[in-house]
Simulated scan of single mutants.
Amino acid sequence: MKLSVIIAAILLLASHSAALAAACQFESQGEGRVADVVDARSLRLDDGREVRLIGIEPTTTTKQALAAMLAGRDVSLRGTDDTPDRYGRQPALVFVGESDTSVQALLLSQGDAIVSAEIADKDCAAALMAAEAEARRGKKGSWADPSAIKNAESPDDILAGIGRFVVVEGKVLSVRQAGATTYLNFGRNWTRGFAVTISRRMVPAFESAGIVLKSLENRKIRVRGWVEGNAGPRIDALRVGQIELLGTN
């Protein structure tokens, strides 16, 4: 990808939504020059620091897009907590040069990444979701593939993605509680159908966000997360942002 194309994409993204550029500013966590793109979610600076890009999950094109965008570039880091993760990587939003638009938002707007829903700040989370939505509407990048969004009525297709981060859409047929877990069931067969699981400790967070779990019955939603399960696929909703309401039927 040519540098001129990248700059044009940044300018287009910033002009498309001023709110997108204004969000996700957070506290400065330092600056540096990119020495290497380690993998699809992390890079190494010339001072030896390794950085993990927060807020996104990679697609098959993320590493290539990052390498084209960041190789040898000066970047600044922003975030709410610079405590290294268990691999020694500093979690941060990354900005190229003087740009007010994060690399994460740019990747999302190109369809080269998926929102992870890990960022709790509402304005920042909304901005990243807006960038992803732009790519979905334009069928850019990974969203050009019709199978990029899984159908909740096709549990075998979802289960084939076990261990991967996926996006699923469908209607919640029932909401059931079993012990400390609430199940959003998308199929009549609770054992084999797709379901979203929500632990009791997460319920107050959903209610604070205006989502009463029982009210999701017969609602169409979009959910994102890591696929688990054996007979039937499951996604554990650990964050409110993993669930989006799409309609009333």
Score class of each variant (00 low, 15 high):
V175P: 00
A23H: 03
A105S: 15
I6H: 00
N218S: 08
G225D: 00
H16S: 07
I235K: 02
L45R: 05
S4N: 11
M129S: 12
G163I: 01
S199G: 11
S76C: 05
E228I: 08
D82R: 12
D236E: 13
L173D: 06
G229W: 06
D81Q: 14
T80Q: 09
E134H: 14
I149E: 13
L184F: 02
G30Y: 13
V37H: 02
A68N: 15
A92C: 04
G79K: 10
D36S: 12
P155F: 09
S109G: 03
E31K: 14
L66S: 00
E132G: 02
V167F: 09
C124Q: 01
A14I: 10
D74F: 12
G229L: 01
I211V: 07
G161N: 14
D81K: 15
S17D: 15
A19E: 15
E98Y: 03
A113T: 11
G141A: 08
D156W: 01
L93N: 06
R86W: 06
V115F: 12
L20R: 13
S102H: 10
R89A: 05
T191C: 03
D145Y: 04
T83C: 02
K63P: 07
G229R: 00
A180P: 07
G193R: 04
W143V: 10
L245S: 00
Q104R: 06
G138V: 01
V168D: 02
D46R: 12
A117H: 11
A40H: 12
R52G: 07
I198N: 05
A40N: 13
A23D: 04
R136M: 14
S4W: 09
L173H: 09
E50P: 02
V203S: 06
K122G: 07
S116V: 04
I162A: 15
I119N: 02
R176E: 15
A67H: 04
K214R: 15
Q25K: 15
C24V: 01
R234K: 14
D81M: 12
A148T: 01
A117Y: 05
T191H: 11
V196I: 06
A127Q: 04
S116H: 04
D81R: 14
A71Y: 03
Q64D: 15
L77H: 08
D123H: 14
I114Q: 11
D100H: 10
I6E: 02
L20W: 05
P84Y: 01
T248M: 08
Q242E: 11
K150M: 15
T197E: 09
R164H: 12
A130V: 03
L20P: 00
K139N: 13
K122S: 14
E132M: 03
C124A: 03
V115E: 14
S142M: 14
M202V: 06
T80W: 07
K140P: 00
G229H: 02
C124M: 02
Q64W: 08
L3V: 10
L106V: 04
E132I: 05
D46F: 08
L66Q: 03
